[in-house]
Simulated scan of single mutants.
Amino acid sequence: MTAGSDEPKGRYLRYLEVVTGSLEDKKRWRQYKARIKQLPDDYRTAAEALERYLMHFGPADGAGAMAMFADLADLLERSAADGTPIRGLFGDDPVEFVEAFMANYPLGQYRARERKRFTSAIARAAGEDAAREDGTV
């Protein structure tokens, strides 16, 4: 890497992002975690539980996931500022809340592609020959 040239540094950063993932997404993740850390204890506990659930079942791509986590932080910060009780926010069925919350975000390319592939395979197995591999009819 030469000191006066931006090109080698640009190439290096592009290579680094291929290996480690988007540096911008990592920055956004650290910002999200800092916001969650500032919440009152009960909201932080709820946020951590919701985050754990979303890591397993939420969007698989970085950009979609980061938009979702930023919106989650916004929601929790507003709720804490307004004094909304945890049950008032999540309701009696937290899974129903989180599933409705996730429905607003794209699944991510891999999961969407696999869902289409699975649906198509079942249609073929059921003898519905109009279904194709890409999930279209």
Rank of each mutant, 00 (worst) to 15 (best):
D93Q: 06
E99N: 05
R111V: 15
R52N: 08
R87S: 10
F97V: 02
L89V: 08
A67Y: 03
Y53W: 13
G58E: 03
A80T: 08
A100S: 12
K26F: 05
S120L: 07
R44L: 00
D93A: 10
E48I: 02
A130D: 15
R52C: 10
Y105N: 01
A49M: 06
T20C: 05
G58K: 02
V137P: 14
D93L: 03
R115F: 07
T45A: 09
R87W: 01
E7P: 01
R35I: 01
A47Q: 03
P59R: 07
V19E: 12
G10T: 14
P85Q: 03
K33T: 13
R35Q: 13
G127P: 08
D82L: 12
T20P: 00
G21H: 07
A80Y: 06
L75S: 05
S22I: 06
R30Q: 09
W29I: 09
A60M: 02
A112P: 00
R117V: 10
R30F: 06
T136C: 04
R11M: 11
S79T: 01
G88P: 02
A60S: 12
A65R: 15
S79N: 01
T2Y: 06
F118T: 14
D134K: 09
K116H: 13
R113Q: 12
Y12V: 09
D82P: 02
E51C: 00
D92Q: 03
G4M: 08
L23P: 01
R52S: 09
A123T: 05
A80D: 04
R78L: 03
A34K: 10
Q38C: 06
Y15R: 11
T119C: 08
Y32N: 05
I36P: 00
R28E: 11
E128M: 11
F57L: 08
D71N: 15
M55F: 08
A80I: 07
T136P: 03
A65C: 07
R11A: 10
H56F: 14
A121M: 14
K27C: 02
L23C: 00
G135E: 10
K37D: 13
V19R: 08
A130C: 09
G58F: 03
H56S: 09
A63K: 13
Y53C: 02
F97Y: 11
Q31R: 07
D74I: 02
P59N: 06
S79K: 04
